[in-house]
Amino acid sequence: MKIAIMSFAHLHAVSYVRCLQALGVELTASDPDHVDRPAGEAGGPALAAELGVPYVDSYAELLEGKPDGVVVCSENAKHRELVELAAAAGAHVLCEKPIATTLADARAMIDACAASNVNLMIAYPVRFSPAFAALKGSLESGALGTPVAVTGTNNGQIPLDQRAWFVDPELAGGGSLTDHTVHVADLLDSLFDSARASSVYATTNKIMHAGKVEVETGGLVSIRYDNGVSATIDCSWSKPPSYPTWGGLTLQLVGTRGIADMDAFSQRVDGHSESTGNGVWLSYGTNSDAVLVAEFVSSIAEGRAPQPDGEVGYRTLQIVAAGYESVRTGQPVSLAPIRSET
């Protein structure tokens, strides 16, 4: 099994590389855009060498190696270009979230992969968290009754220090609303199975990190699903820069028979360090990235289509796009019926 890494722009690439190495697959990488990044941002052959991954200078060369699959970790706006290259080369694709910055790009990516008969999987690792699997199991078993309402939070530090492109409206597609709505939206897509978002209201602000970035840093997104559930997602980059960890993801589901609280990153040792002058936060438990990547590799080996797929990526991006439209109009936005691809 040969897997190629396309771009190190998103630093999740580092985690995916380590997980793929642990699986023993053959890896190559290319990160030609590293030369355009601000000074101090790791990438290119230096990062590849640090990770112990063979490096080539261009995507063309990378794809000439006939990888079975590629992992696309470019800036969000460049996902389409790289996914189309990979699909044309016959490689299955695992694409970092969000799928794209526009719905047109997302649809083109889905179509390109379908035309080449390759899988398009979107990197939503929290879906592979055991806590989420248990929550989904509780809902499906009826233990929680009928779902009534959900509050999801995906709050983190502003990802400004590691990668400047995250706050570039063109390259990222937006700020925290783009970055942090889709993970929870993906979980709801999975939990509610065939139910679809029917209306989205969002409000955002730029109070945190004002003056440093153009994009929104705070946001609340309210979604009505056609199964009657109302869900609100806090997508704010509201963890302070000195917070002892990057952030987290929580989901509270109110059902007619019970209330479930999931904290996907709750398994940790807490403490305080005099040497860092800060809280200690030692995560343990399942590395969801490893399960995600293993599913991508298994799906190729077994010749089946993995989830979450491009359609989930599209639906979650639709919620983001409707959120921005709602911010613009100040009113909730109805979602057009989802186009069926099957």
């Binding site: 009754g145 009928t146 009534v148 309402a149 509050t151 209201y201 409000t203 602000n205 609340l220 309210s222 009505r224 009657g228 559930v229 109302s230 609100t232 109110v254 059902g255 007619t256 028979r257 100040g330 909730p332």
Partner: peptide, 24 residues
């Protein structure tokens, strides 16, 4: 300045209900 709200009232004998209000 602005108030938006959604509510779900579960059907059936349970009186379970949730509301979600967003203020700007």
């Amino acid at each position: 300045a602005t108030v938006f709200a959604r509510q779900t009232i579960a059907p059936g004998p349970d009186v379970v209900r949730s509301c979600q209000v967003i203020l700007t």
